[in-house]
Write a protein that binds this DNA or RNA. Structure first.
Lengths: 337, 337
DNA sequence: CAACGTTGTTTCAACGTTGTAAACAGATCC
DNA sequence: GGATCTGTTTACAACGTTGAAACAACGTTG
């Protein structure tokens, strides 16, 4: 085994606890001993044994962030923000990919009981409200995203319905009338698409416009491209498309441009997520930008509240901000953001 | 805190150690007590405290797998195999993305000293042999990939030079004479490209053929597409291209097809990595398939050897197998694999 | 029947850390 | 000179676990 407090104490000629005090920055240590200890510390290159510390403190200092997929840019970007927000609490984040599988989601939650992690931030896909409610552990848990509202745990998300309505309104505001929605899903695993569809429908209905809906299986570029091709093949192709996320929009954009049509002149295009790629596409992509940093911070704060104040309290529902970012794909090339 | 052995022991009316014995499947426990204990165990839903166990055993049961990027399909696929191989040792794998940054690579190695992980499987990019050799910790470390050979730690990789030569020979064997290499890098961070370039050069020289080399910055689809466009624009475009990985090849394929040329009739195309996408592209992609499962298993085995037998021993160099997988992109559509 | 082995169970100590409380030294006060 | 306070340091115990050793009960052997 490595160097322990005992070894350092022996070398410095003080008690183990004094070394511990120095390591933890305890105030009342005389400059002389502090110097002495610090010399011994660096001489032996002491590193605290985290297992021992965790055992003593009853906490691991690790939280899990469980997401359905990491290769989706939105989740990858969100991860960064969570890691940063957690770092401020001196927490380490382990990221788990669930693939949306029930078994994996369960296993992540078990991590709390196994004392592997102190808490979990979960973007649930398969696991149900009932099962979450049935869990007896006092697990600190924050739910993320659109799948579960008013569940048995703290929850943070943007207002998807309103966001979708805003984008749709924006497209209608450009004078477009044949505004299509791209990204509906009939496999109801995702909680996202019904909400965004609802927002779209609200806006269209409010303006007395007919709805055109293209379905996809998954939120990926390729699916966006294929679905867009179907829309183009219709007798009356749309003059604007609201894609339920940016990846779909980028796929759709490729199809439109490949067909010799122009964005936004022939078809205006908007997405949702504000991923990096959309800022550098040609044309750049209008989108809804969830405040990812805020989202992450809220999730971490909710977790901390549960961990600190053992105070149970009812689950909290929090909305994160978002803003509509108008770029070239709805404003014409060369337009200023 | 949760349920401890003590709680279970109290309920079952036995000693703490007996409960521990049952939990760990120790042989000499009478059926009667075992049943009694197991009832108490499940009644209280006991979960061992890993911090305590780790402290006692001096091991964490966790290893780190540190890769430059996870969104590259090759690394993503490799991760799976490492996780599986580690699971057989009852090890948990935490995956760290280093982005090839020196600081992150160092931090991963520090994980060993912090008792966060028992060992590390690292695909090094920035860290140098000298620094690795200078590390005083007895860290169990296995290096992966092409960057460092004959370093101060165990190492496993495929024979890149030979693999590259084999592919090139295959292309030449098709009767092609203007065989280009796509994927050279002048920023020498990657250890991969010089090796693959050397293999290509060996084969070309052996057949007295002139070399054509296209450079890229990173191994991504888009770069492959752009580099291929440059090759096509040359006065004498190639009739075969060996791309240094599959992503580059898939990018190149898009460019070729978009230019109205046929694969493999006009230009034969081969990659290296055998990623999923290449099996479903049109045409399917000829490639070198490193035995990823074997690669992963060897890495894990090397690590285990270091952890079990404290026996130091000199660093070991191991070569993993690979095979040339001929698909449509060099064998004509409809050809059998 | 004493010595010995086997099986089942327990006691003890230790892994490295930190909170609590107490001990200690020195300064200040009356 | 004793009491009190402040600042610094220490002894102790405990977190939950498991290896080593001890122990008890029982059967086997010479």
């Amino acid at each position: 085994m490595g160097v322990s407090l005992r070894d350092v104490a022996l070398l410095a000629g003080v008690s183990v606890k004094t070394v511990s005090n120095v390591v933890n920055g305890y105030a009342h240590v005389s400059p002389a001993t502090r110097a002495k200890v610090e010399r011994a510390l660096s001489q032996l290159d002491y590193r605290p044994n985290l297992s021992a510390r965790n055992l003593r403190l009853g906490r691991t200092g690790v939280i899990a962030l469980a997401l359905p997929e990491l290769d989706a840019p939105y989740f990858a970007e969100l991860s960064r923000f969570v890691i940063d927000a957690a770092a401020e609490q001196k927490w380490i984040v382990v990221i788990e990919q669930t693939d949306g599988s029930l078994e994996r989601e369960r296993r992540v939650l078990d991590g709390v009981r196994d004392h592997r992690v102190d808490g979990v931030i979960l973007s649930p896909v398969s696991i149900g409200i009932e099962e979450l409610a049935a869990r007896t552990d006092d697990a600190a848990l924050v739910l993320l995203g659109e799948r579960i509202y008013d569940g048995p745990a703290d929850h943070v998300a943007i207002d998807n319905v309103r966001a979708a309505r805003d984008v749709t309104e924006h497209l209608i505001g450009l004078g477009r009338r044949r505004v299509a929605a791209l990204g509906a899903q009939d496999n109801s695993v995702s909680g996202t698409s019904p909400l965004r569809l609802a927002g779209y429908a609200e806006a269209m209905t409010a303006h007395g416009l007919p709805q055109t809906i293209a379905e996809v299986e998954r939120y990926r570029r390729a699916e966006g491209a294929v679905a867009m091709a179907r829309l183009l093949a219709a007798p009356e192709p749309p003059d604007a498309v609201f894609c339920f996320n940016d990846l779909l929009a980028l796929g759709a954009m490729r199809t439109i441009l490949a067909a010799g049509l122009r964005v936004p002149e022939d078809i205006a295009l908007a997405g949702l997520d504000d991923i990096e790629d959309g800022r550098y596409s040609t044309p750049t992509l209008t989108t809804v930008a969830p405040d990812k940093a805020q989202l992450a911070r809220i999730a971490v704060d909710l977790l901390r509240a549960r961990l600190d104040g053992r105070a149970a309290g009812p689950p909290r529902e929090v909305r994160a901000d978002y803003r509509l970012v108008v770029r070239e794909s709805t404003a014409g090339r060369g337009a200023v953001r």
